[in-house]
């Protein structure tokens, strides 16, 4: 659906994008991740035709963004960061304006506006001026703007910024819902969001791609393997470590006891057990603990999150 080929962008002497290559398939939800200034917004702006690439190219459905910009704009719905809408217009007038720009007229226009009002929860603010709205509502009007033309591709630049936690969940559900039929690209710096919503993530740092793949395979590829966190009550840390070390598959055990924490004061021992295999070592660990009769407080598999991978990939050069 979308092919990004050797994309470069210069702002004067500053090179914001240093040759990006990736493809996005039809019906995929792609998360564009990266720290501030990584080039997420620039990539999206080139895709939507707001900026021209300095070198390289983007093809949408085999059409070049530079030559067929008008045709591609018809296929793309875009929500820029911070949704810069016309403040003096009423929400209804604004939606009507966007609907007309998308070529909707008469009953089609009225029906589509009504659908957007329901979908984005704009009923209470429909006759208010846009500049009076809270940031969350502005963001929702921006979403309605992006989805008005029922586009094939939805490009959302940080769609959940400024929303309250309930709205964030709603928007995520909405993105997933749309993603069943359409192609969605969205940028975020909230990693749990990408983890929860995307089929695939592309991580950009300083204008280059540092990771690209399905969410779970990235976790596998860059993750540190299986880690079990254990908290139990025993006065002798060394003994506990020694006993647990002999369990098959244990690579190393780290003592993570936080002596300053009130919760784990006294005889509590906190350990992180690293496994060298992909197999679950929890049954074997638990057997040892039960044999020794130690009082177990906490015992769980640490899930390797994108957070760790992200930090690992984007902070190396700093």
């Amino acid at each position: 659906m979308i092919e990004v080929q050797g994309l470069q962008k210069f702002y004067g002497n500053f090179q914001a994008l240093k040759g990006l290559d990736f493809t996005i398939n039809k019906g995929e939800i792609l998360g564009l991740l990266g720290p501030n200034g990584a080039g997420k917004t620039t990539t999206m702006r080139i895709l939507t035709g707001f900026l021209k690439p300095s070198r390289g190219n983007i093809k949408v459905a085999d059409l070049n963004v530079i030559e067929h910009s008008l045709k591609i704009k018809e296929m793309i719905g875009y929500l820029p960061e911070a949704a810069p809408l016309y403040g003096e217009m009423l929400v209804y007038d604004y939606l009507a304006y966007v609907a007309e720009m998308r070529g909707l007229r008469g009953s089609d226009k009225a029906r589509r506006i009504a659908e957007m009002v329901v979908l984005c929860g704009l009923k209470e603010v429909i006759y208010r001026a846009v500049h009076e709205l809270s940031k969350g509502y502005k963001q929702r009007v921006g979403l309605a703007h992006a989805m008005m033309g029922d586009p094939e591709i939805l490009v959302l630049d940080e769609p959940t910024s400024g929303l309250d936690p309930n709205q964030i969940v709603e928007i995520r559900e909405l993105i997933k819902e749309i993603g069943r039929k359409k192609t969605v690209i969205f940028s975020t710096h909230i990693l749990s969001e990408a983890e929860a919503t995307c089929d695939r993530v592309v991580i950009i740092n300083q204008g280059t791609i540092v990771a690209d793949g399905p969410t779970d395979s990235l976790l596998h590829e860059f993750g540190a393997g299986v880690v079990v966190d254990i908290v139990l009550q025993h006065p002798d840390v060394a003994l506990v470590i020694a006993k647990l070390s002999i369990v098959a598959g244990v690579e190393k055990i780290e003592n993570t006891t936080d002596t300053e924490s009130g919760l784990l004061s006294g005889a509590s021992v906190q350990l992180a057990v690293f496994s060298s295999t992909d197999e679950d070592i929890r049954p074997a660990l638990y057997r040892v603990i039960r044999e020794q009769g130690w009082d177990l407080i906490d015992f769980h598999l640490r899930s390797e999150s994108l957070e760790n991978i992200f930090a690992q990939l984007t902070q190396e050069e700093c």
Partner: peptide, 14 residues
């Protein structure tokens, strides 16, 4: 100045 030009040019209009 307001940035609304970004929304305008990404709509299908030359």
């Amino acid at each position: 100045n307001s940035g609304s030009f970004e929304l305008l040019t990404t709509l299908p209009v030359s």
